[in-house]
Structures are given as C-alpha cells and as structure tokens.
Design a protein around this nucleic acid. Structure first.
Lengths: 248, 248
DNA sequence: ATTGAAAATTTGTCCGGACATATTCATACA
DNA sequence: TGTATGAATATGTCCGGACAAATTTTCAAT
C-alpha cells in the first residue's frame, strides 16, 4: 500500500482489483484470491479487504459465495442507462384519474391476428373487456382500450363494470400476485372503425397503439392491454438517466 | 434481541428500524438514534449496528453523514420499476450496424415549429444534418433522420459526411463529454414529403417520429435527433422489470 | 470406480477497541 | 450582536480476534 495515494485503503484495493479484472488478470468466471491472501498481499486487515470486495460485488463485478470464494462475473462495471418509475401508473402518460367506460365484457378466444399481436398462445380463452377511456370529467376521450385478462383471474369480473383504477392493480390486490415485468410495444397503425367512431376522429387519422403485457414472477401473462390513441394528440415521452450504480 | 427470530442480528435490527420508520416513530427528515444509542438499545456491537444502517441506506430510507447522524429521507422503500439498458444504442431498436447516408449538412436556425418540438431555445444556431438511415447493406431504408447538433461541437463536422456510428458517440469521444440523460418522445404524425419520397412509401402512411434529446451532466442539450420511421413497419418495444433495490 | 463421512477451506456474522474526520454546539472574544 | 475558537458529538476508517455456516477437497470404506 502507498500512503501517498488518496482515499481510504479499501477504495485503493478495490480500484486495484477492478483494474486487474478489466485487464484480465482475474478473468471472468475465474476466482479472485481469497480474503486471507488479499490481506497478506496488501498488508491490511480482513475487515478492509471485505469492504473492498463489497464494493466490487455492489458494482456487479464479482459474486461472493460463502465457502466458495469471490467469482468474477463481469469484466467492466455495467453502468448503463435506466428509465425508472416509482409505479407502473407512470406508464400511462395521461393523468391518473381517468375512468374506463366499459362497452362490453366477453369471454372469448382472440382471433389469430390479435393473438399474435398480443404475444400469447392462440386458442386460449381470455376474458376480454373493451371500452373507452375518458378523463375524470368523462368528457374528453383518451383512448380506445381492449383488455385481455387471463382466465385465472376471472374472479374480478364483477368489478369490471366500473373499475376503480387500473385493472392490473385490481388483480394484484384480489389475488396477491404482483406484476414482476411489463413488456410494452408502441406502434402506429390505421385506426380501427369502432375506435374512430368512439373517439370521434377521422378514419384518416392513424392511431398510436400501445400494447402492454403484464407478467408475474413466473412469466405468466396476467393481462394484456391494447390502447389505441388518436395519433394527432398523443405522444409517448420517457427520460433515461445514466445509472449511478456502476461506480466503484 | 430475541435469538428465536430468524436471520442475522443486523437484519433483525434493520427490519425493526424500517418498521419504526414506516410507522412514523422516526419521521421523515428526522434523525435515527446514534450508533452508540442503538448499540445500547439492542445490546449489540457498533459493527452490527453499522451493518443494519448500511442496509437502510442502500434501500434509500436513510442518509448518513459523518458528524451529523442518520437522517430519514423516505418512509417506505421505493422499489419501482426500471427499464434499463447497457448502452444507449439499445434506444435504437434496429440493428446496430446501420449507416447514415447524409443528404445535407447545414448550419441554421431551426424554424419556430421545429425549435418548439425540439425543446430547445428558438433563435439559436444549430448544426443540422439530414439524411436517410439504411441497413448495413445500404438497401433497406430504415428512417429519415434530422439531427441538430449544438454548435459547441462543430468540430465533428468533417466526420459527419460518413459517420462511423451514432453521432452522440462521436461527440463523447472527441470532446470527452458524456451523455448523462436522454429524453425521448414518440409520436405519430403525417409523414413529410421528403421523408416519404426518400423512404419510398406512400404519403398516406403515417410516420412514427422519435425525437431524442441528449443532455450532458450540466443539462446542456448536446444533440437532438428526429427520426421518422414508416409507421407500417416500425414498432417500439421496451421491457420494464421490478426494481430489486427496494428490499431491505 | 463410487459412495460417504471427515477435514480443510472460505466467506458470513459478531465482538472488542482505537483513531480520523466531519459536523454541531457552546463559549469566549471583539 | 456577530464572529472565531475550541470542545463535544457522530460517523468513517482500520485493526485485532473468534466462531458459524457453506462449500470444496480429501480419503477411507464399500
């Protein structure tokens, strides 16, 4: 160790080890020296070595396992960009207080085309809800929604006539299943006749179609929503921030 | 402490403190007891107390400051959803190996409408590059791009005729400025005449317009790109994952 | 060669102490 | 009253040690 260098020793050791990992001295999938060996090499206590290793683990460079050792799992800190949201409600860009005017509730097998678009197996029976989403006052139409619900959650059917909020939340509360992952797709396509009629827009306007698949921890599709927004008054915006976790 | 409870003591203490924070015993903006006081209350060593507090800090519940104390900054772990990418290149959904066929390079003041759309001050002079983005073979057109570059980076102008990759990367390498934040907007709009002509699509097709603003750490807009994709063959997809950081 | 138990290895948890450094607060001074 | 100084306080860093728990290795018995 060199006392002239700046910063605490655990940071110095952590930096040195990171350089070695980047240089390939400790290759990915290989193992770092044991804590005892690092203590000896740097003439520091095990406590300080562990602080250094903790930083490497937090940076996602190594994985530590009791009894086994510290394994290198990445050569460089990831530190990409993230788009984060506190709640899934931020996926809906419109104000949170909207209401869904349900047009019809059916139990059906989606046609081949919708099934492919939905990213779910064809031939499966889904609970389908369709309707117009309006602002809180019930005046301004926002989008035309078709929502496909996994039949495992058919129990929420009575509540669908006037859903109090987002339907995925209804399922989370009723069944205790949490949404673990959401896949979202945004595309432009010619607006469908019913959507144009309900939204009161010209059929020459295209729709921005937002498809969201809600999956649980097991990868099961809980819910798929298809929202057709009038293309002349909808835009989707998001902010990405450099991830701070990558630093060591 | 109760030895019957499961898990290590620092986790038990961390859980208890978190419950107190959630209950308001330690209100937000207030301070936790000092390490010494916690040592006494739980009859554990300072080392164990520090491990417990570290977990709370990592969960974003408290902020620790030397000489001051541990301040509560949130009552509940956030644990929202994140959409993360290792590189900004993942923002471009098409294959990474595309090339930009530059049509023209000008230095101009964007019109009022584009300036507003771009989210930058009007009246400013920008370096503007426009052209068609093609696949690697140069056969299939992908989108029509208009790129507005902050004049502070006018030095990259010679390299713009045949940009080797993404232009933001050119700036990062040449000037040593890193992109800290990206704002992205996706909307559908009638396709412009030049875009339709260059892309070889009907003017009745709408375009999916993706506007990206690249900002540095100081909030300066480095670059704005406007990409018009043919709406009949483009979709934007993203995956959101439940954030694992929220656990304590 | 395979299995199973014991031993060695390695990290996890927990304790004790000491000094450094940043912050806050009380006090004396102008 | 305002300011500067020093004391008290609180967290940061670092060392030493001990035992627990998980894993891997060794080696003997089948």
């Amino acid at each position: 160790m060199d006392a002239r260098k700046p910063g605490p020793r655990y940071a110095q050791v952590s930096d040195i080890l990171q350089q070695r990992i980047a240089a390939g001295t400790y290759p990915v999938a290989g193992f770092l020296p044991t804590e005892a060996e690092l203590c000896q090499e740097f003439s520091i206590s095990r406590h300080t070595v562990r602080d250094a290793l903790r930083r490497l683990a937090e940076a996602g460079l190594v994985q530590r396992r009791q009894g086994s050792g510290s394994q290198v799992i990445a050569a460089n800190p990831q530190g990409g960009y993230v788009h984060s949201m506190r709640s899934l409600d931020e996926l809906f860009q419109y104000a949170a207080d909207t209401r869904l005017r349900v047009d019809r509730i059916t139990e059906s097998v989606p046609d081949a085309v919708p099934a492919g678009m939905l990213g779910v197996d064809a031939g499966q029976v889904w609970l389908q809800v369709a309707g117009l989403r309006l602002d809180a006052a019930g005046r301004v139409p926002i989008c035309w929604s078709s929502i496909y619900i996994n039949r495992a959650f058919a129990g929420i059917m009575p509540d669908l006539a006037a859903p109090p909020g987002a339907i995925y939340r209804l399922i989370e509360e009723r069944y205790g299943v949490m949404v673990e992952r959401v896949e979202q797709e945004i595309r432009a396509m010619p607006i469908s006749a019913p959507a144009a009629a309900e939204l009161g827009v010209s059929r020459r306007i295209w729709a921005v179609q937002v498809v969201r698949r809600y999956l649980d921890a097991g990868g099961m599709v809980m819910l798929v929503s298809v929202n057709d927004h009038p293309g002349d008054r909808f835009s989707y915006s998001m902010q990405l921030q450099k991830d701070a976790r990558g630093r060591v």
